[in-house]
Design a protein around this nucleic acid. Sequence first.
DNA 1: ACAGCATGTGAGATCGGTCTCCTAGTGGTT
DNA 2: AACCACTAGGAGACCGATCTCACATGCTGT
Lengths: 344, 344
Amino acid sequence: MTGKTPRRAVTIKDVAAAANVSRATAARALNGYGYAGEAVVKRVAAAAAQLGYRGNRVAQALRQGQMPIIGFVPGDIQNPFFARIAHDIDGQLRGSHHNLIIASSEESETQEQELLESLRTLNLRGLIVAPASSGENAHLHRLVAEHYPLVLVDRVVPDLPCDTVSVDNAGGAQEAVTYLIRHGHRRIGVIHDESRIVTAQERLAGYRKALVDAGLPVKPELMVVSQSTVEHAIDATIRLFNQRERPTALFTLDSLMTTGALLGLRTMGLQVPQDVSLVGFDDFAFATFTDPQITVVSQPVGKIGALAVRMLMDRISGHDGPPRHTRFPTKLIVRGSVAHVANP
Amino acid sequence: MTGKTPRRAVTIKDVAAAANVSRATAARALNGYGYAGEAVVKRVAAAAAQLGYRGNRVAQALRQGQMPIIGFVPGDIQNPFFARIAHDIDGQLRGSHHNLIIASSEESETQEQELLESLRTLNLRGLIVAPASSGENAHLHRLVAEHYPLVLVDRVVPDLPCDTVSVDNAGGAQEAVTYLIRHGHRRIGVIHDESRIVTAQERLAGYRKALVDAGLPVKPELMVVSQSTVEHAIDATIRLFNQRERPTALFTLDSLMTTGALLGLRTMGLQVPQDVSLVGFDDFAFATFTDPQITVVSQPVGKIGALAVRMLMDRISGHDGPPRHTRFPTKLIVRGSVAHVANP
DNA sequence: ACAGCATGTGAGATCGGTCTCCTAGTGGTT
DNA sequence: AACCACTAGGAGACCGATCTCACATGCTGT
């Protein structure tokens, strides 16, 4: 060990020289295409093994026009929902000799744009994106226009002609709120975020529809805005329940907000479900951990990543049909956080 | 829209042609090195903007020998601890024009090997790894021997000469168990995994040391093995507490096991801290969520990723000193899950 | 007027593979 | 003996960007 080996990788040229053949022949022998004599194949393989040849995927990618990599741009990798999807994508990809590159947009539109731009120039095979915004999204439209393989997960952008995998947010929310109404609740609060994010919009729409269908008024004072973090949700909950006429029930739009609501209610000394009934969108590990356990709208998280990959691979291998949209149904999981209230 | 635009990217050749200069000049104008006339620079810039030129990072990478990407190989991206670190790495990397590629080893040694092999051939700038095993790790040794920039996080491999960022697992565990001993506990159970993973080994060593230092026996029947999942930890807890002479306290080696222990104890009808005192390694969102809140050994998670990136960047930019090892101290966060017991 | 220098630009090599095209040798057929 | 089919392997183009080198200006100083 002389200490500083300047780390020069073994190239196919080295292998060819060692096996005493040309680069072309070495490549043929290693990759098993075209004609290659048995003796030569053996010699080349031996030389490659001996030198520890590993090929250079960058060079291969340049020649072939793309990298055997697909990109995933979630809203936030720390969100267990996206972590799970990332995990599933990774699993589904394994074996197809593709790597996964994860780059979180941190729910920032501009960051998302930069990331997509950056990933595009890497010549990835395709992208799976959960767009941070439902707004303009010119960058996504551009990708689609270029026929760049793209699948949207969780968040659907209206009018963007590409494959999507999502869940029935409106339906799930509607079911949850209807369930509360059936238990006699009339003043049902909701914590939602500013709803640049499509899923939040859809869930809020479901909340509205449930009320309207039941002939109940949609009251602005029952709808408080919060960012999707535990801390902000705590504040929002306290604001909501500090009103003169309190809600008797609360619906939260994602698991972080559900957590925040729970903590906020506890801070205020309000008991679930005696004082307040609670239903949250999105099941989460600790919903069964509390006392009482929380009633939630659960999404089939485990199916989303796998299906997205299948759709993407389909596109990559040339499928050129019209955009396909899959919406998984949600399921109301009844636990113990909702109580009946009497109506005067 | 004819429908099928075969997506041919704009190359520098196109830009050069449009600006009526040579490729070399176009490159100079765009990258601002060497001489370039003002008028030409403008013309080229205009042409590039007009055509939507974006450069091809694969080609650049081939020419320059490496990709502006660093890789992160965590044990499990679904583990909030690693998700947080991934998030921090990403943040720290942003602005230095590097992308992050995350590829989870799923705690499998062979998968880790394949991933590293695969990432190596992508000519990444460097790697941040949390090795799945403390065993042989020939693949890691090979990387180090090749002077491939490598930083280990969370899990230190003995004798591997590379930079590491970890926490004081032994010390933290020792502090936790000593804390239990001071509260009068003599039969202290521990749930640990098979400990291929270094952190688990170190934490278990801390448990042992605390007992030995206090002159207490280390009893095998108080140490149960469980995989690091909630489900397995529930089983392990039940096994542990089904013994004739029950432990009065329990120490768990990570947050998933703490969760499992809590659920297991609840199933058995045992109250924390009245029947059993509990301390967990690693703080987690829901430790403050339970009643009582859980006393834990917390790690400075937020510092690990950022420091790892700084160390890695340092190596990438040529630093060639001896391996540096940072161990962050842990902190015992006292909440309400430990009670005093009287000793006969 | 001409050397000497700073400046601007193009031709072509290069990175490490892949792949097309071409040549050469072998064996079989007529 | 002439021809063809087929196998084996080499030469060199190519992917897209960068960079060295050479060349062509125009300007200054003597």
